[in-house]
Design a protein around this nucleic acid. Structure first.
Length: 836
RNA sequence: GCCCGGGUGGCGGAAUGGCAGACGCGGUGGACUCAAAAUCCACUGUCCGAAAGGGCGUGCGGGUUCGAAUCCCGCCCCGGGCACCA
């Protein structure tokens, strides 16, 4: 498409200038108020894709807008450069991941720059930079010393495709790996964990005050999964110590201690340590079979067998009983795989009448139930298979069949039963979380080594700070074995103990790459301090991030870890006191979809931005992303998209021709008073400032663009047909200023041609309030809610005058047909509604 | 199953209690041109009508209101998240 100006040259020119002049470099001693905008740093996968374009367009717009509003805007960029793709490429091609990664970084940097996105590149961070790794390891050491990093043997998620363990957060709901899609299996392994559960309550409570999208907060709340209840001991019958054997009891967790009188059996998880002791000889085979099956099955298999149909295979009676402390009656103990060892105590009291899972199980095994909450009228006692209300009743109601709890409501009964348990010394009020500690070990090469040494004498010894970073050697065997590639390298593995100098071995696991991304935003504030990850006072100056931008896919993983890290780093003295949350505002933009699927390399449906950058240019592509719809919504890339992008380019051409006419506009007479037509343009100009400014604040860029288009539609005929040059100049200059954050190159070039200086150093325009006040308004006149007439009226028309004008209107008289108005609703000056 | 979003022309979308469809894409017609491109102008929800004009219309059904795309209740469909968490 032929263009009105030389798009490519102009874009290159300005990109060079912003970089050469350091236009967007700021320091902490800048007198302007600080504002920190950050777009999630990317994994360097090569040239930018459309998702990046969208992301960085929003971020860049904010940087430029806030700068024009008079802030010192911190806008850093970096690369999340550790990770599996580089290592997989190394396995395939033999190229070292560092070489592979550095090349991808250069490509991505180049394409981000050609978008016109501006950053303070002096602050660039790369996760695999030895300097960054050093501080990563220092942080690990501090967390270890504070007891927040620990090593434990635990059943963990193992991805056979990635040859490494995964955190719970990285396993999808269907039991597959979020990265490779392989079915994740359980393994018992010694692994490193971060004690994120210490912060469970704070992570939950802190959400309330964050200006984050509600659904992200809800996802985090669900993930943390707080539930309040009680733990209590159930004495095992026959094991009270009277026969000389040690007394035994089963500890259970429940959220409904108020239903204790309704416990008719108890269940332990197949992996529960007490199973062997509880199981009598005659039930041993059955229990063993169930345990074997549970151990062999994946979570998927367990779930696929859920439902009442397969319940009969899912449990086994142990032959033992425990005593319900509330009634004193013994109840049978079952082993069943619907109880999970990993949650609560791995054992439950079963109350079929008030829990649907217990109900289903009780039905399958012929176990009785006792209601302790009065169900509503019409509740089917047995809960037939034909549906309808019945079976377990989990709603509110009065306590029944519960002795001293009878007549109480559920919350009161809960509190009373917890009090009672505590008085009796057999239980305690307890809060449980779904959240587990963060498993950070990875058996991979391309990550930050965990800086720990194992000494026969001194155990786990952190590598001293002056010996950091621990770097992986380059000459390692990449082929995955299930062990870290570092473990097969004797030169790395064998070392000496920092404490005693004796022979020792190194930890060979590397850290989850989410560790790198959990504090990079802090590093950005001060990547230069030699003796700390960042200077506390400088971090205090910029933090928290005023606006964080990224994809919804990080709602749990990255955003939860980063919140945890921020709190933990404050607590170990690295981050400034008082900082509790890293990201004050979060915006999650929609993804780009094609043929109903997310546009991505792995789906093979990528549309390369480069083909647009070298044709219509960055400004047109940026304008498209801003215009196509609300930023939070997904974008569907269709056959029509190219036409829309062309439309955006066409619009920029129109702006260019208005701003930089081929032939200079006639000077025009600017001495007379302004005509109505002149004033109308001036009003529209100032109205535009107001609209665009408001739309920027509320992330409504699509309507901001629409307003600018509308304005050009209005201005164009005025300018062409001899409009006053002073009025046109004001209009055009204003338009360029408002476009400057969206389409920076064309705005900068046009401005320079008109004024000789730099538009992005100008201040954001303010509307003249006098011009925002309209003298006349179109008043709508309705009869019974139907529009019958539109009348131009004075903006300050009185209610009586509005009513009178409305009733005199010919179409209204027609519509009334002589009928007497029953009621007239006047909302001057906008509307009058006549009701008959 | 539970919890969030969402459903408006041929398409992307606008309007958050007061003119439904701004703006753009696509389409139709016209001007300019030898012609094309570019540019400019007009029209473009649907039905009835030659027109003027009028009826209908925001997933479906009810309700509140002078007035509902917008608020409330019930349902249908689409997308996302969670899912034996006791």
């Amino acid at each position: 498409m032929a263009r009105a100006y030389d798009v490519i040259d102009i874009e290159k020119k300005w990109q060079r200038r912003w970089s050469d002049e350091g236009t967007y470099e700021v320091d902490a001693d800048d007198p302007r108020p600080p504002w920190y905008v950050l777009t999630m740093y990317p994994y360097p996968s090569g040239a930018a894709h459309m998702g990046h374009v969208r992301n960085y367009t929003f971020g860049d717009l904010l940087v430029r807008h806030r700068t024009m509003l008079g802030h010192a805007v911190l806008s850093p960029f970096g690369f999340d450069s550790f990770g599996l793709p580089a290592e997989n490429a190394a396995i395939k091609t033999g190229t070292h991941p560092r070489i592979f990664t550095d090349a991808r970084i250069e490509e991505l940097k180049e394409s981000i720059t050609s978008l016109g996105a501006v950053y303070d590149w002096r602050r660039e961070v790369r996760s695999h930079d030895p300097e960054y790794m050093k501080w990563n390891q220092v942080i690990f050491t501090k967390l270890f010393e504070a007891g927040l990093a620990y090593r434990a043997n635990a059943p963990v998620n193992w991805c056979p495709g990635c040859h490494t363990v995964l955190a719970n957060e990285q396993v999808l709901a269907d039991g597959t790996c979020e990265r490779s899609g392989d079915l994740v299996i359980k393994r018992d392994l010694e692994q490193w964990f971060f004690r994120i559960t210490n912060y469970a309550d704070e992570l939950l409570a802190g959400l309330d005050d964050l200006a984050w999208p509600e659904r992200v907060k809800i996802m985090q709340r669900n993930w943390i999964g707080r539930s309040e209840g009680a733990e209590m001991d159930l004495a095992v019958q026959g094991r009270d110590g009277s026969d000389g054997r040690e007394p035994r009891s089963l500890r259970v967790f429940t959220t409904r201690p108020d239903t204790s009188f309704g416990m008719t059996y108890a269940v332990v998880a197949p992996e529960h340590p007490l199973v062997a002791e509880l199981t009598t000889a005659e039930h041993a085979d059955e229990v063993a079979a169930l345990q074997a099956r549970a151990a062999a099955s994946t979570d998927i298999e367990r779930m696929s067998e859920s439902g009442s149909a397969s319940l009969s295979k899912r449990g086994a009676f142990t032959g033992s009983s425990v005593v319900n402390p509330f009634t004193g009656a013994p109840v049978p103990v079952y082993v069943a795989d619907y109880v999970l060892m990993g949650y609560g105590t791995g054992a439950i009291m079963a109350v079929p009448a008030e829990d649907t899972r217990d109900w289903d199980f009780a039905q399958a095994y012929g176990l009785p139930f006792v209601r302790t909450v009065q169900p509503p009228e019409g509740w089917d006692e047995t809960g037939g298979p034909d549906g309808g209300p019945g079976g377990a009743y989990t709603g509110t109601g009065q306590k029944i069949n519960s002795d001293w709890l009878d007549g109480l409501d559920i919350p009161t009964a809960k509190a009373r039963s917890i009090e009672w348990l505590e008085q009796q010394g057999i239980g305690v009020g307890k809060v449980n979380y779904r959240l587990r500690d963060w498993l950070v070990s990875r058996q991979r090469f391309w990550g930050c080594p965990i800086p720990i040494v194992y000494c026969a004498e001194h155990g786990m010894v952190p590598v001293p700070a002056d010996q950091l970073p621990v770097l992986a050697p380059d000459d390692v065997e990449f082929q995955p074995t299930g062990e870290s590639p570092l473990a097969t390298h004797p030169g790395f593995l064998n070392t000496t103990c920092p404490t005693c100098g004796g022979p020792a071995t190194r930890e060979t696991d590397t850290m989850d790459t989410f560790v790198d991304s959990s504090w990079y935003f802090l590093r950005f504030t001060d990547p230069w301090t030699p003796d700390a990850p960042f200077d506390k006072e400088i971090a205090r100056h910029w933090m928290p991030v005023d606006q964080y931008i990224g994809g919804i896919e990080h709602a749990i993983l990255h955003l939860l870890y980063a919140r945890f890290f921020t709190k933990a780093l404050v607590d170990v003295g690295i981050a400034p006191e008082g900082l509790r949350e890293p990201f004050a505002n979060l915006f999650t933009q929609g993804m780009i979809r094609m043929d109903g699927k997310k546009m991505s390399k792995s789906k093979g449906n990528l549309v390369a931005p480069s083909s647009y950058l070298t044709t219509v240019g960055a400004d047109a592509l940026r304008l498209f992303h801003l215009f196509v719809g609300p930023p939070a919504d997904d974008v569907d890339w269709t056959e029509q998209t190219d036409s829309v992008i062309d439309g955006c380019a066409r619009y920029l051409d129109r702006v260019w021709r208005l701003a930089v006419p081929d032939e200079p506009r006639a000077a025009g007479d600017t001495t007379n008073d302004l005509s109505d037509a002149d004033v109308a343009i001036r009003r529209a100009t100032h109205k535009l400032i107001e609209r665009v400014s408001r739309d920027y604040e509320r992330w409504s860029y699509n309507t901001a663009v629409a307003a600018c288009m509308e304005f050009v539609n209005l201005l164009h005929p005025y300018a062409r047909d001899g409009g006053r040059s002073d009025v046109v100049d004001e209009a055009v200059d204003t338009l360029l200023l408002l476009l400057a954050p969206m389409t920076p190159h064309v705005a900068a070039e046009a401005w320079e041609r008109r004024h000789g200086d730099h538009i992005h150093l100008e201040t954001w325009p303010l509307p003249d309030p006098a011009l925002l006040v309209e003298d006349t308004v179109t008043m709508v006149v309705q009869v019974n809610g139907k529009v019958r007439d539109r009348i131009e009226v004075a903006a300050d028309i009185s209610e009586a005058d509005a009513e009178r004008l409305a009733l005199e209107s010919a179409p209204v008289v027609d519509a009334l047909g002589g009928a007497m108005p029953k009621r007239v609703i006047a909302r001057p000056p906008k509307l009058v509604n006549i009701v008959v």
